[in-house]
């Protein structure tokens, strides 16, 4: 890992206060860092806290209901204490985000050109004419055919794949240092997904931006990420370089996930299933949060929450039974 990471998250905790006074622990003691030019995959199932973590980085969580503690250091700022005005200067500029739903993340009443130009003018200034030229250039970079004509189209004239390209062009408008992509290909067909993933790889190579890719698709992770953090019930349960995560996972939840996906490269008669349900995050279990569903559970697992420990260099697991290989040898 390089000397100082581009973004460093320390002990991030996010609690939501519901109207009925209930408190939901959405994210608990999350530590993460991403180096310049690296791609981190944030993996987990619905409700594990991966999207909430990314919204916290962007400063997009509702102030009234979300209680956030910890630190998010990015480029010399602590994003959690940065005033809104400064955050607005960072967002869309050095910090950019792509959302899952390309159908709803563009404003239908403005042309795509207007929306990209707005970003450029807000952060870079200059003339409208030069911003327009830059917008055309950006659309060309994301492989939109005849961008000089397309720039005046309204979003409804574009297909889903095209809109996601426009979102990417907009995110790249000010050469961000960190790009957060929240399920960027989930709403797309597979052939379009392949195009967008290829585009992201291409752009990463060209710009050197760091990427946090949030996804539930382990195939996407294997194809584009360098490092992976697996989240379960608001916590990071495993963090590893991508090769190691797939070849020798050290948390039972990761093992279960890997076993439960149908694969093209080998056929399992029966898929693995993770029995039971995710815990109620209003009252998280006292010990390991995965314990009620874990086939390797011991009494000790339910007594105290396990710490995130380093199993091998750069490979961390929140499980007291590591290394898991010893359980089956």
């Amino acid at each position: 890992m390089s000397a100082s990471p581009l973004i460093e998250i320390r002990d991030l905790r996010i609690r939501f206060h519901g109207d009925d006074g209930r408190i939901t622990h959405a994210v608990d003691s999350v530590d993460l860092s991403v180096a310049n030019g690296a791609t981190l995959g944030l993996v987990g199932e619905s409700g594990c806290g991966k999207s909430v973590t990314s919204l916290a980085i962007m400063g997009l969580l509702p102030k009234q209901s979300a209680e956030i503690s910890g630190a998010i250091r990015f480029d010399g700022f602590d994003l959690l204490t940065t005033p809104d005005q400064t955050l607005r200067d960072l967002r869309g500029n050095r910090l950019a985000m792509i959302f899952q739903e390309p159908m709803t993340s563009l404003n239908p009443s403005f042309t795509i050109g207007d929306q990209i130009i707005e970003t450029i003018l807000r952060h870079r200034g200059g003339s409208r004419k030069s911003a327009r030229e830059r917008a055309i250039e950006l659309l060309r970079r994301v492989h939109i055919p005849s961008p000089e004509r397309r720039i005046d189209d309204y979003p409804h004239k574009l297909s889903g794949g095209m809109r996601q390209r426009v979102m990417i062009a907009m995110a790249l408008a000010c050469d961000p240092r960190l790009l957060i992509a929240d399920e960027p290909t989930t709403a797309l067909d597979v052939t379009l997904q392949a195009q967008i993933l290829e585009l992201m790889r291409e752009l990463k190579a060209a710009s050197g931006a760091a990427i946090i890719l949030i996804t539930h698709d382990l195939g996407v992770v294997a194809e584009v990420c360098d490092e992976v953090a697996v989240m379960y019930a608001g916590e990071i349960v495993e963090r590893a370089p991508v090769d190691e995560l797939f070849s020798a996972p050290q948390h039972p939840y990761t093992v279960g996930l890997l076993g439960s996906i149908p694969r093209l490269d080998h056929r399992a008669e029966q898929l693995a299933t993770i029995e039971g349900m995710v815990p109620n995050m209003a009252q998280p279990p006292a010990g390991c949060r995965f314990a009620p569903r874990c086939p390797f559970v011991l009494d000790a697992c339910t007594r105290a929450p396990p710490p995130l420990v380093e199993v091998s260099v750069g490979h961390l697991s929140r499980c007291i039974r590591t290394p898991l290989e010893l359980l089956v040898s």
Partner: peptide, 8 residues
């Protein structure tokens, strides 16, 4: 071939 494989 477009399906991402869970195989880095």
């Amino acid at each position: 071939s477009a399906i991402p494989l869970p195989q880095p």
